[in-house]
Design a protein around this nucleic acid. Structure first.
Ligand code: FES
Ligand code: FES
Lengths: 140, 140
DNA sequence: CATAATGATACCATTTTAGTGTCATTATGT
DNA sequence: ACATAATGACACTAAAATGGTATCATTATG
């Protein structure tokens, strides 16, 4: 079971690089190379981040991507929700129908608490904090 | 993203029922009916729990399953690991190769902490605690 | 107008999860 | 003995999620 899928992981690392490049325009081509990610896949990811307002893109020759918002405002939770949908640890359903005891169920309550905690933790991890470590964009 | 898959969920609810039935032998057929789960699927799950030592089975007419260990000793973590493999939230790898900065990486460290916390929480949830609520086996 | 970039989107491949089916084995009761 | 009702083992299929590719359109630069 994975909390973070590859797409999200790529997005995080890509944003780390872009954040470090301070206003320089980054192209998919260059980034894919330096991070050793499949180019078309990365492209799709950056496009998504663009439509979500996290990156800003410019087309045409000399175009590419730059950050559109403060890296301190980009949380891993946000990225997870963009690429993996709403954060839900368990539906806890009864074969399609919502479980009848869902209000009082101990198990469900525990899971909800875990979910809340994890969500909070993920919200605290931001691109800024990650890039501070000065580790991400090294190749090999 | 799901922390608990359907298989694990079924296993938990099935164990809940079995735990409540106090030494009575439970058959797949009856259980599948009362919990509204696909019979063959449930059967595979109980078989698995049998080989893992959590249930004890008896074959032949009048056979079925009973608990083999104290429900207070069956944790959700254990069940998750049986049906979903070792609990790991993120590999955090660099395209197949293990990430070179894995020791110092802030992101990885945060994820590890989350993983540890969640694991601990899941270990605390036991079948006994779940059944105490007296909610699980109701149908509809 | 060639070129180098993204936008949109359809498509394909792989992996994981969910679920079924079948035949063998075993215990029970008549 | 035999019908029956249960599990054991395991192969198989189906569906969903994830990962990844490909193509054509659009746009800005020089
Ligand atoms: S059994 Fe469904 S909410 Fe707990
Ligand atoms: S970037 Fe790989 S361990 Fe953090």
């Amino acid at each position: 079971m994975k909390l973070i899928t590859k797409q999200t992981d790529y997005a995080i690392r890509a944003l780390g690089c872009i954040a470090k490049s301070k206003d320089a325009i980054i192209t998919v081509c260059g980034l894919a190379e330096s991070l050793d990610m499949p180019q078309s896949f990365l492209r799709k990811i950056l496009q998504r981040l663009n439509t979500k307002g996290i990156l800003k893109s410019s087309k045409g020759k000399g175009g590419g991507f730059v950050l559109n918002i403060n890296p301190a405002k980009i949380s891993v939770l946000q990225l997870v929700e963009i690429f993996q949908g709403e954060f839900k640890l368990s539906e806890h359903v009864f074969k399609g129908k919502i479980c009848p005891v869902i209000k009082t169920c101990y198990f469900k309550n525990r899971l909800d608490k875990i979910e809340k905690d994890v969500k909070k933790q993920l919200q605290l991890i931001t691109i800024k904090k990650i890039t501070k470590q000065d580790d991400l964009q090294r190749k090999k």
